Simulated assay, not measured.
Amino acid sequence: MAQHRRQGTVNTRRIASTAALAATAAVVAPGVAQAAEVVVPNTDYRFEVAGLENVPNIDQVPNIDRYVPSLGKVSNQQHTNYAAAGHKPAAPAQQTVGQKALAAARSVIGSPYVYGAAGPNAFDCSGLTSWAYAQAGKQIPRTSQAQASAGTPVPLDQLQPGDIVAYYGGASHVGIYTGHGTIIDALNSGTPVQERDLNYMPIHSAVRF
């Protein structure tokens, strides 16, 4: 019996609190509008309060959707609309020509070195770089010396992925910079296309197409 009395006391307090909220809302509502249904949680008590939805910041009351279900629906709808309008997914960044050429060079790592070969199954050094750039939609000179002369010079501390690095005094060898201190190149007979340290050989210059 004591348990039933405590339950009644709790329900009475809930009803009183909700009724007070509803009465206050009715007084401060700026004008008559459609009545909002107020629900007393965990009971069958329901009643309508005219103008409740017009009370300033009523939708900010904690757990308001438990007492006024229609306000919870409006809040959820507003949140959905805001998410749709204000949080559009960022468009993926487009790859540069150099990044595309680098990706092409990386795709043939392990291919054999053959003097004079320019892909797609075997390469020499400038054959690899010219083939990789062709896959990126850009035609560059075929020989290492011509590539070193034709591109835009780039300081070594400003290298970007896809830049061509030339080696030795006469720019007799080239590789494609990866962006993290290495190049991909076709070095010589018996050595397949692979990634190696940027400073593996004496650097002549670097260019960008």
Rank of each mutant, 00 (worst) to 15 (best):
T152Y: 07
G162N: 07
P155M: 03
T182E: 15
G169L: 13
G179V: 06
H180C: 01
Q194C: 00
I184G: 10
V193L: 08
L187Y: 11
P155V: 12
S144T: 13
Q158I: 01
Q145Y: 14
S144V: 14
V193E: 06
P153Q: 09
G179A: 12
T152K: 15
G175D: 12
I164Q: 03
I183L: 09
Q158W: 00
T178V: 06
T143Y: 06
D157P: 10
V165N: 09
V174F: 06
D157A: 03
D163F: 01
E195M: 09
G175W: 05
A171K: 13
V174N: 13
G181Y: 08
Q147L: 08
T143V: 07
S189F: 00
L187C: 00
V165I: 10
A148Y: 03
Q194G: 11
R142T: 12
D185S: 15
I164L: 15
Y177V: 10
I176P: 06
G170F: 13
D163E: 09
A146F: 00
G169K: 15
I164P: 03
A171I: 05
Q160R: 15
P192C: 01
S144Q: 12
N188C: 00
P153T: 00
I164V: 14
T143W: 02
G170A: 15
T152F: 03
G179Y: 12
R142E: 10
G162L: 04
A146P: 01
G190F: 08
V154H: 01
Q160P: 03
A186K: 08
V174S: 09
G190I: 07
P192Y: 06
I184M: 00
Q158D: 13
L159T: 09
T182N: 12
Q145N: 14
V193Q: 06
V165T: 13
Q158Y: 02
I183R: 05
A171Q: 14
N188Y: 07
Q160K: 15
I176K: 07
A150S: 12
G169M: 11
D157N: 15
A166M: 14
P155L: 11
A146E: 14
S172A: 14
I184A: 01
G175A: 12
G179N: 10
S149H: 01
Q147V: 06
